[in-house]
Write a protein that binds this DNA or RNA. Structure first.
Lengths: 236, 236
DNA sequence: ACCTGAACACCGTTCAAGT
DNA sequence: ACCTGAACACCGTTCAAGT
């Protein structure tokens, strides 16, 4: 019986799970995994390497340094934003708010990415799409070019700051009860200040400590920013 | 000749520069020094201890941990803000903008403090004064209580985010030339995008990359926020 | 009571040596 | 060309021992 032609010449050699070669793609995958599991501070070159069953030095063949890895994480989060509603110039304010909500959603879905995003200028394909959409909405609102351009800076800065603040707070592994207790303590602390020196702080201790969840505060923020931008529109 | 009465009993003992005892105050002084010299990332317990000619463990008798030290640095920066102009209700918008400028000035004077400030709830004496002043201005503008309270959150968040972004960028030890080169490269990059897919990005490449210094962008931001807040005023 | 040295469990990055 | 072990110069925090 002759050997079947598809038999390997040296059958003894086991498949030996030759590790899939490292690629940027796989490195970012692993980093996202660590990010989700341990937050931004958990993402070290060593941990990412460990996730890939190799040593930290191996990563440097594909990624210049930690900062570049951070940038790649931001691009991943950017790619997760979905803006499917066609631009409707008559609803530019509402659509701009929706865009900011979607930005926050994507950041929250990847806790820690906000920290990486804060100093970064996002220039990937998806980031440019988001920028183009922002500009379209702002020009629909009759903003002058320079105002629209600076708004493109202001909007992600605000959203990123909110997301980053949330991750800083949640990094201190507090339970919801801990947070509630902290907020209650805070309210009491403010209410007990000397009313002659801090009358409004005392009077508004309640409102000052409400909406801790963040959603209401964020809605307030995007409303203020949108209204402020609308006030800059060219009246023609 | 009798000994003068003020001669020490055992004159052999030299003054031996008995180190001034550690205090929170001295630790924060040292940390501010390191902060100014090396930025936020330079502020390690070890470096601060070294500045005080002791070991890192010694600090833990006075400061719970690094996070508490960060908080103390924020309070220092808060204490450097000066608001001497009396509140004038008719000029609340202008005075609110001036307050934000002063916040940014104090943060810039202590590069790195912004990073420490971003998740912190500032509750020191000086921070409460700033909060009281913000509330006074906002109520002068007829904002509802809840809007004023959330604005007290929004305003420092924005200023801190701007300051933090600046320190992240300047941390990468770039010279002004490097920055200019980067901005020029960025403008070219944007201008060269496919105009059919990113028409506004291409058309506004100039405005998008102008005002890199930050001051103009910051003025834009505080104008938008102030105008947006004004739009929420109760009309009575 | 306050301070300290030494240790523990971590970092990012580099580099010579291996395949 | 790609990967790796080992090393370098750092971290924050703890703790037993000293004064």
């Amino acid at each position: 019986m002759s050997q079947s032609p598809w038999q390997p010449i040296s059958p003894a050699k086991p498949v030996r799970e030759r590790k899939a070669p490292l690629t940027r793609e796989r490195i970012v995958d692993a980093a996202m995994e660590v990010l989700r599991k341990e937050g931004y501070d958990g993402v070290s070159m060593r941990k990412v390497a460990q996730e890939l069953k190799t040593g930290p030095a191996s990563l440097y063949a594909h990624v210049a340094n930690k900062r570049e890895l951070d940038q790649l994480l931001v691009e991943r989060a950017n790619a997760q934003m979905v803006f499917d509603e066609p631009v409707d110039p008559t609803r530019w304010q509402e659509q701009l708010k929706a865009l900011m909500r979607e930005m926050l959603r994507a950041m929250r879905a990847n806790p820690g990415v906000a920290r990486a995003a804060i100093g970064a200028v996002p220039l990937g394909e998806r980031a440019l799409q988001t920028t183009e959409r922002m500009l379209t909405l702002l020009k629909a609102g009759n903003l002058p070019d320079q105002a629209a351009a600076w708004a493109v800076d202001l909007i992600p800065l605000y959203v990123t700051a909110v997301a980053f603040e949330e991750t800083v707070q949640s990094a201190s592994d507090w339970t919801p009860q801990d947070v509630e207790e902290f907020v209650n303590g805070l309210r009491t602390f403010l209410a007990e200040q000397p009313a002659d020196r801090f009358p409004l702080v005392v009077a508004l201790a309640g409102p000052l400590t409400s909406g801790a969840s963040g959603d209401e505060r964020f809605e307030f923020g995007i409303t203020v920013i949108t209204a402020g931008l609308a006030a800059l529109a060219d009246r023609t």
